[in-house]
Amino acid sequence: MAKLLSLFSILAFVVAMSIVGSQAEDCAQDLSGLMSECKQYVMFPANPKMPPSDSCCGVVQKVNIPCLCSKVTKEIEKVVCMEKVVYIADKCKRPFSHGFKCGSYTVPAK
């Protein structure tokens, strides 16, 4: 598990460094907040899904989701369970709409 968290941290760092454009600073800051507050809720395995903490939801409420989702790669999807990401967003009252793409993951209908 420690190796998996280290891999996630490395991948997240690579993503943060690859973010360019006018939203770069905000998006990188969003990623940092998500890593510190939410990573335990979005890692594989897909089950069980745990309700997020208030601090995780606080970060989810503020992030630039389109910016972050545009940076999700196949490598990140090997470490981060996109089903759990959608679950956490929903629990934090910031649900993804049906058909929204985050990386290569398309949000299914409920």
Rank of each mutant, 00 (worst) to 15 (best):
V80C: 05
V63T: 08
I88E: 09
G99K: 11
S32P: 01
K49L: 09
C57Y: 04
S55I: 04
G33F: 10
K74M: 04
E77W: 13
Y87E: 03
S53P: 06
I65E: 09
S70G: 14
V86F: 08
M43D: 07
H98S: 12
K71R: 12
P66A: 13
P95A: 09
S70M: 05
R94W: 03
Y87G: 00
C69M: 04
E77C: 14
Q40G: 07
G99Q: 08
V60T: 03
P51T: 07
P51V: 09
S55C: 01
S97G: 04
K78E: 11
S97N: 09
S70L: 02
L34W: 09
E83T: 06
V59A: 06
S70C: 06
S55L: 03
P95Q: 10
P51E: 13
V85S: 03
P48W: 11
S104V: 11
Y105N: 02
S55V: 01
G33S: 14
F44P: 02
G99W: 10
M43T: 10
E75G: 06
Y105C: 02
F44M: 04
M50R: 15
Y87R: 07
C56K: 04
D54W: 02
D54P: 01
V72R: 00
Y87C: 02
K101C: 10
S53C: 05
C56F: 01
